[in-house]
Computed example of a mutant assay.
Amino acid sequence: MARQGLDALDGRMLRLLRERPREGLLEIARRLGVARGTLQARLDRLTGSGVVTGYGPDVDVAALGHGVQAFTTFEVDQPAREAITARLRAVPQIIEAHIVTGPGDIWCRIVGVSNQHVQQVIDHVLEVPGVRRSTTVIALSTVIPHRVQPLVDEVAGLLGDQETHLR
Rank of each mutant, 00 (worst) to 15 (best):
A2G: 13
Q4I: 15
Q4V: 15
G5D: 12
L6Q: 01
L6W: 04
D7T: 05
D7G: 05
A8D: 07
L9V: 02
G11A: 02
R12I: 00
R15Q: 07
L16R: 08
R18Q: 15
E19H: 04
R20C: 05
P21D: 01
R22L: 12
E27R: 09
E27Y: 02
E27K: 02
I28V: 10
A29C: 07
R30A: 04
R30K: 08
R31L: 12
L32Y: 00
L32M: 04
G33K: 05
V34S: 02
V34D: 05
A35Q: 11
G37R: 09
G37E: 14
L39H: 07
Q40I: 15
Q40R: 12
A41M: 12
R42N: 03
L43N: 04
D44C: 01
D44T: 06
R45W: 11
L46N: 01
G48A: 08
S49Q: 15
G50V: 11
V52W: 06
G54Q: 00
Y55G: 09
Y55H: 10
P57D: 06
V59F: 01
V59K: 05
D60S: 07
V61E: 13
A62R: 07
A63S: 10
A63M: 08
L64C: 06
H66V: 15
H66N: 14
G67A: 15
V68G: 05
V68C: 04
Q69Y: 14
Q69M: 14
F71C: 09
F74N: 00
E75C: 14
E75P: 03
E75S: 15
D77L: 12
Q78P: 11
P79Q: 01
A80Q: 11
R81Q: 10
R81P: 01
R81T: 07
E82T: 10
I84Y: 00
A86R: 11
A86E: 14
R87F: 00
V91G: 08
P92H: 12
P92K: 11
Q93L: 05
I95A: 13
I95D: 08
E96L: 14
E96K: 13
A97Y: 15
A97G: 06
G102E: 00
G102T: 03
P103R: 12
P103H: 09
G104W: 04
W107I: 07
R109H: 10
I110P: 02
I110V: 15
V111A: 09
V111T: 13
V113G: 15
V113P: 01
S114D: 02
H117S: 09
V118T: 02
Q119K: 13
Q119E: 07
V121T: 14
D123Y: 01
H124M: 12
E127M: 11
E127C: 10
P129C: 11
G130A: 08
R132W: 11
R132S: 07
R133T: 04
T135M: 08
T135W: 09
T136C: 09
V137Y: 00
V137P: 00
I138G: 02
S141E: 14
S141G: 14
T142K: 10
V143C: 08
V143L: 14
I144W: 13
P145F: 08
P145Y: 03
H146T: 13
R147N: 11
R147Q: 12
V148Q: 11
P150Y: 06
L151D: 12
V152H: 11
E154T: 09
E154F: 09
E154H: 13
V155E: 07
V155L: 09
A156W: 06
G160L: 04
E163D: 11
